[in-house]
Amino acid sequence: MRRHRAQRWANHAVLGLVALLILLPVFVVFEYAFATKWFPAHWWFPQEFGMRWFERLLGLGNIVNAMINSYMIAAIVAVTTLLVTFPAAYVFGARTRRGDSRLIRLVEGFSSVPLAFPTIAVGIGLLPVYAKLGLLSSLPGVVAAHMIMAVPYALRAMVGSFIMVPPEYEEAARNLGAGRFYVLRRIYLPLVWPGVMAGGIFAFSWSLNEFVLVLLLGYPNIETIPVQIYQFVGGYYLHPQQAAALGLFLLVPTLALMFLVERTVRGSTVVPAGA
């Protein structure tokens, strides 16, 4: 009994430490976003708090528009990325697929290239192509550009889940006469759902955070929150409080959204709760 209690305390201690590690930087963002006076040499905490930076940002305009753009693009990127990668992840991951065709292996290997392709080089390379295709400063253009990085992330997350599914399930279904589509939808999808969600969330979070490609390819019609943050933390000029306040415009709604998703779609989140 005592041992049990000690273990519980140890569990709480470890989780508490993890929570502290995660929350410390977030706490600092809040501190900065609301600090209107803070002389760091003499004060550990801000001397005065206020809403000044939020008022200023809202006064500068475009925030709401940029927020809508950010979320809309991220959602479209997540969905289209999943549509493109799900069938491919099945071929790469499911153990009943031998995947030993050269072409398939080539595609799989090549899908890692974007991960190490500096976005600024991608952007510059795409500029002339987009100009020719008339995709500059358009929503489909930005979505496609974001998918470049989202695809390998989603793919990796899903392939892992496909591998975990015992091959006997598919074989059994096949023997009973199930078709490819049926197997994918009824056998695999429920089993790999965590991987799909993880892939979708990675695509979503990547797109939500990206600013170089939007800057290069989306200007002047498409502006997102990270682009605005970049403008305030551009290296040559940095306004910590306004950048922090802007960061909250992105962070708070996203977390609220995540929280809602977890509550409503039980058991189907990235990390299956309570399993």
């Binding site: 475009n62 510059i124 500029l127 002339p128 100009a131 020719k132 500059l136 800057l215 290069l216 200007y219 002047p220 970049y230 403008q231 551009g234």
Partner: peptide
């Protein structure tokens, strides 16, 4: 008014000129 980035704006102009827009 569009608040952007000097490099992005520069590339935009150069690109448009090159494309004879």
């Amino acid at each position: 008014y569009r608040h952007g980035d000097w490099f992005a704006a520069q590339q935009q102009v150069l690109n448009e000129v090159k494309e004879k827009k």
